[in-house]
């Protein structure tokens, strides 16, 4: 059974930058949202965390396409991640989280897992 999710609003259209990314904070942690106006769909959301450096930087990478696949290049060590699948093009074993995104009027919503309040460890 699918874990419960919420479609949470994270920002508005005015916050987006064409052909580039911005970072938002969600209950699931930092997420980067990319807007590629020449593609359909034009919105992509993936984790903001670069798995190779552990830093929250992916929204600041350069977007583009490699053999037709929409990608972002990590600004730290330059690996490419598919914006559709989250898969790293240079290293098959590495994948980042992908979040479904949609435009709701002027707002961008992401589908994020509902976080259960976890008991605080002693």
């Amino acid at each position: 059974m699918k874990a419960p999710t919420n479609w949470v609003p994270v920002c508005t259209v005015d916050d987006l930058v064409a052909d580039s990314g911005i970072a938002v904070w969600t209950e699931d942690g930092p997420v980067s949202v990319f807007y590629l106006p020449n593609r359909l769909p034009a919105l992509f959301a993936v984790s903001h965390t670069d798995p190779f450096s552990g830093s929250n930087v992916l929204a600041r990478g350069i977007t583009g396409d490699i053999n037709g696949e929409p990608v972002v290049a990590s600004p730290i060590y330059k690996q490419h991640f598919s914006l559709r699948t989250g898969r790293c093009l240079e290293d098959e074993g590495v994948q980042i989280k992908v979040y479904p995104a949609l435009l709701d009027g002027n707002r961008i919503r992401l589908e994020v897992p509902v976080v259960q309040a976890a008991p605080v460890a002693a």
């Binding site: 590629l36 593609r39 350069i62 583009g64 396409d65 929409p70 290049a73």
Partner: peptide
């Protein structure tokens, strides 16, 4: 052709 990449864009 295409959308560009981190080589050609900069």
């Amino acid at each position: 052709k295409g959308q560009g990449c981190d080589i050609c864009k900069p």
